[in-house]
């Protein structure tokens, strides 16, 4: 029974992914016929240069970016939730995104707005600097969380630590903003809105590899992740070196979150909510099934956000204005139904 539920869910998610990707290719501020879009995608120029550029250099990179970023953030959330044994953990709530954001801010503001979101991110050098900034920032926050986790055993307390770290990093960012140049602040603020349109065609290969490598490595963590569901003592008894496993999991999480944050901004809620969508729709905590479902559902949610951000007649809406609208109701539902949801018991 549950096997067919798994198959059906996965097929449905894959179909939804294709549908959303197609919608993102078709809709936007400029109307282009579906047939024309198809021709451009299959390598036939439409004759209208603007349309070619819109389809190949705006819409297509956005679709790929959203797919990868959504999958990465969601898997990162899944890994964090199991690592900290806390279903309400996520890269943004634990402050990992904010940490990455601080790294980005330092780089951006130091370089005085020459790097940043969509428009200004052009030179590979400054671009790598942002990425490294994000990695260092996320790494520092994860290190703090790991150290605190040794002392603070209550997972609720650990969440609060994460939130406190977020506040602290936000305040450092504000301080940096007050001494930075106006353009620097502007590009940082724009970056903070979140966007899936910040990765150009030229940057896509690096972005994809940087996410696909940790995603593939995460597949090898499925077995120890399942053992960790039983708690540290059982996991170690099943042959899992929990310390090493936690470190690897946090490293992967840090990589995924930092790369996405550097390119797309600190995107909230996707990492927190999508693992729950996967668990609720599959009715299992088994990571062998959760993992592919989380991957696909994450891509779907991100594409839906991307679609919502571009179809508005009033111009582009920031991604971070949309994610809470999807995320908050799900979290509230989960909190209210805690006792009835199997994976909390």
């Amino acid at each position: 029974m549950s096997r067919s539920r798994f198959t059906i869910t996965l097929v449905a998610l894959a179909a939804m992914l294709l549908l959303l990707a197609a919608a993102c290719m078709l809709f936007g501020s400029v109307h282009i016929e579906a047939g024309v879009v198809w021709n451009i995608l299959t390598g036939h120029s439409s004759g209208n240069r603007a349309w070619d550029i819109i389809v190949l250099q705006t819409r297509l990179p956005m679709v790929l970016t959203a797919t990868l970023a959504g999958a990465a953030l969601s898997v990162s959330g899944l890994l964090l939730q199991t690592t900290f044994n806390n279903p309400l953990a996520g890269p943004s709530i634990l402050g990992v995104s904010t940490g990455a954001g601080l790294g980005v801010a330092v780089v951006m503001l130091a370089l005085g707005g020459t790097v940043g979101s969509t428009v200004v991110l052009h030179s590979t050098g400054s671009y790598l600097a942002t990425l490294i900034g994000a990695l260092v920032g996320a790494g520092v926050v994860l290190l703090i969380l790991m150290l605190m986790a040794q002392v603070v055993h209550s997972s609720t307390m650990l969440l609060i630590v994460g939130i406190l770290v977020s506040y602290l990093t936000s305040s450092i960012v504000s301080l940096l903003n007050s001494i930075a140049s106006e353009e620097g602040v502007h590009s940082y603020v724009t970056w903070g809105f979140g966007t899936f349109s910040g990765v150009s065609t030229g940057q896509l290969p690096l972005f994809s590899v940087a996410l696909l490598v940790p995603l593939c490595l995460a597949v090898f963590m499925i077995k120890p992740l399942n053992a960790l569901l039983l708690g540290q003592r059982y996991a170690e008894n099943l042959g899992v070196n929990t310390r090493t496993t936690r470190n690897v999991l946090l490293l992967l999480t840090g990589l995924l979150t930092a790369v996405v944050t550097a390119y797309c901004g600190p995107i909230a809620f996707i990492g927190l909510v999508v693992p729950h969508i996967a668990r609720l729709s599959l009715g299992t905590s088994n990571h062998a099934r959760l993992f592919p479902a989380t991957l696909l559902a994450g891509a779907c949610v991100a594409l839906a956000c991307a679609l919502a951000s571009v179809v508005s007649p009033y111009g582009i809406i920031p991604i971070n204005a949309i994610t809470p609208i999807i995320g908050v109701p799900i979290i509230v539902y989960i909190i209210l139904n805690r006792r009835r949801i199997n994976y909390f018991n």
């Binding site: 549950s2 044994n85 090898f220 499925i222 399942n226 569901l229 708690g231 042959g239 949801i341 018991n345």
Partner: peptide, 29 residues
């Protein structure tokens, strides 16, 4: 075997018993 609380309620009985085979299975379990 302990009586510690765990977040494994959404595993089936069989999946839980299969965990016992982890020491013998490969990297993918």
């Amino acid at each position: 075997v302990t009586t510690e609380r765990m977040l494994a309620g959404a595993l089936t009985v069989q999946e839980m018993v299969e965990m016992g085979r982890q020491p013998y299975t490969g990297v993918l379990g």
